[in-house]
Nucleic acid binder design. Structure first.
Lengths: 331, 331
DNA sequence: CTGTTAGCGCTTTCAA
DNA sequence: TTGAAAGCGCTAACAG
């Protein structure tokens, strides 16, 4: 009985106008006589009419939505970014479609699917390492793409400099007088891991110091990796122990601290510790760390994307966000 | 030059078939002679054709997407839920549109917008307290709706029982021999807050005990709220101090612990402390707490939603997820 | 098995 | 200002 699907024709008929007019009041486009508009609006209310966005989008060739693409996990790292994204989208009546895409061979294909599906007007890819893939197909499309946490000149890009971050940490320790510094890196293969290693070496070399191979470990950014690495280091003869440890993530730094605690070693007195990320726990444990502006990263990414969609950006936008060393109590 | 937008007609023409056939191979619907199908597939590859989903959706009257609606903040509480949602969506080729909607007067209207926009086939609302609103319009629509972390019989619903959770905590303390127990609740107005208070009273009364008004505090679930509340409690004459404190969130429990530390009070020896949520930090600080299965909540919500969309559910699905008391070192 | 045709519900010229 | 008509790109009968 209840004709569930009231459409623009129903409104037009009941209001005694053409669908073109209804469409016009819907979009506030062109002039519509106030009297007519009021009548239409009234009927829309009566019928409880709301436009079918799918149809609007198809007809207008815009999706009123953006895609945010993230790799495998929505972890705590990503929460701040997402908050920034959300806030930047606030007020805009633009939908956020969240895609989780693994970084494998099929990655670019899946992204192309999204692009050509026409369901979104723009794409924000967070730490997807797109610049390491074959992205020429994506370049051919004229859809705006912003890469967050990834530096490249082929797309708009907002990024952090891991090399600098690592240098900051090491220089800080160096200035404190430390000379034997251990570095517990993340995954060797990850961009973050390799860049942070570069930064460490660079900082050390600028003082004519070398990174001792026994004091360089790799892990997966997790607590247990830091714990294991530190255990290995502490199993070295004591004279080889470092006076400071820089961990590529706070989680690893926590593992380091645990390994130290088991040997009744205290930071910073016995061995100083610096982490990376500034996670909640780091604040609580008063770990000196490198803070990354994740919220800003998300926010700016969307700001740029929206501007790009509106054609308000010339060329490729590129911006490095500043890191900060948070001096606390472990170093 | 490059005719960017290759559509189904281009494919049909080049393959020498009708668009109906192309559509059939696209959807694997009906039989298509293998030879024809191969030809079409080949042409699609050549032309790098990918279907316009907007058009597909409009024509097929399905969106291939679901909406996940959450209130103001994507906070750490929500991360686990989102992970569960994501994992449940894995394999399905269904898009996830994330809507953040404030719980104000406009809430239901915004939700109706989403429903009638036809952009999604179903809705998962997480802790939105929809059952406290005027939701009859939503009920009229025949779109599947699943409420997560909210109990109701008008929609599918997956929920947690805060009353039970609070009872568990209090009973645990009672069994440990505590009789003077303080309760630091969350917001008085929140469903969680009021239910947990009910649970506390219920558990106490079952042993003929009363909740002393001086030992009942309200806060906003944050660390500083717990801290302040505990300070107030500790400013009472010492004979009025509780021997145990139950905080409605781990964050508040941490605040409690801080306030105690300042007075050189230890948990559990001086005063026992139980939290709620099982956040990361609680694990690290070894806080005894009530664990809520947030990941499962997200996962099951989507499972149910997908089934409902496929018409595989009779009546209203309703399930309570079990809480667990995690016994650690503060109580 | 497959081509043709009629929508899906809107936006957008084009005239009037 | 406004109505009519032509799409947007695809799905889904309906014949054949």
């Amino acid at each position: 009985m209840a004709k569930d699907k009231v459409n623009i024709y129903d409104v037009a008929k009941k209001a005694g106008v053409g669908i073109g007019t209804v469409s016009r009041v819907l979009n506030n486009s062109q002039k519509v006589k106030e009297e007519t508009r009021d009548k239409v609006l009234e009927v829309m209310k009566e019928l409880n009419y709301r436009p079918n966005k799918l149809a609007q989008n198809l007809a207008s060739q815009t999706a009123n939505a953006i895609a945010v693409i993230v790799p495998t996990f929505i972890d705590h790292y990503f929460v701040e970014v997402l908050k920034g994204i959300q806030d930047a989208l606030e007020e805009e009546k633009i939908d956020l479609i969240l895609y989780k895409i693994d970084k494998d061979e099929k990655m670019m294909d899946k992204i192309m699917d999204i692009v050509q599906s026409k369901k979104v007007d723009g794409i924000a890819a967070v730490t997807m390492d797109i610049s390491k893939q074959d992205y020429k197909d994506l370049l051919k499309e004229d859809i705006p793409v912003v890469l967050a946490d990834e530096k490249t000149s082929d797309f708009h890009s907002i990024y952090l400099d891991d090399i600098k971050g690592a240098e900051m940490a090491i220089n800080y320790l160096l200035n404190l007088g430390h000379k034997k510094i251990a570095f517990i890196d993340g995954l060797k293969e990850s961009q973050h891991g390799s860049d942070r290693l570069k930064g460490v070496k660079k900082a050390l070399e600028s003082r004519n110091l070398q990174l001792v191979s026994e004091l360089l470990k790799f892990g997966d950014f997790h607590t247990k990796d830091g714990y294991q690495s530190m255990q290995e280091i502490l199993s070295l003869p004591e004279e080889k122990w470092p006076t400071a440890v820089f961990a590529a993530s706070d989680n690893q730094a926590i593992g380091v601290l645990q390994a130290m605690e088991e040997k009744e070693l205290k930071a910073p007195d016995d061995i100083a510790v610096v982490g990376y990320d500034n996670i909640e726990l780091a604040k609580y444990l008063k770990i000196t760390t490198i803070w990354q502006p994740m919220y800003q990263l998300g926010h700016l990414t969307i700001e740029v994307l929206l501007k790009a969609i509106n054609g308000e950006i010339e060329g490729k936008f590129s911006k490095e966000l500043e890191l900060k060393l948070l001096k606390r109590e472990t170093a």
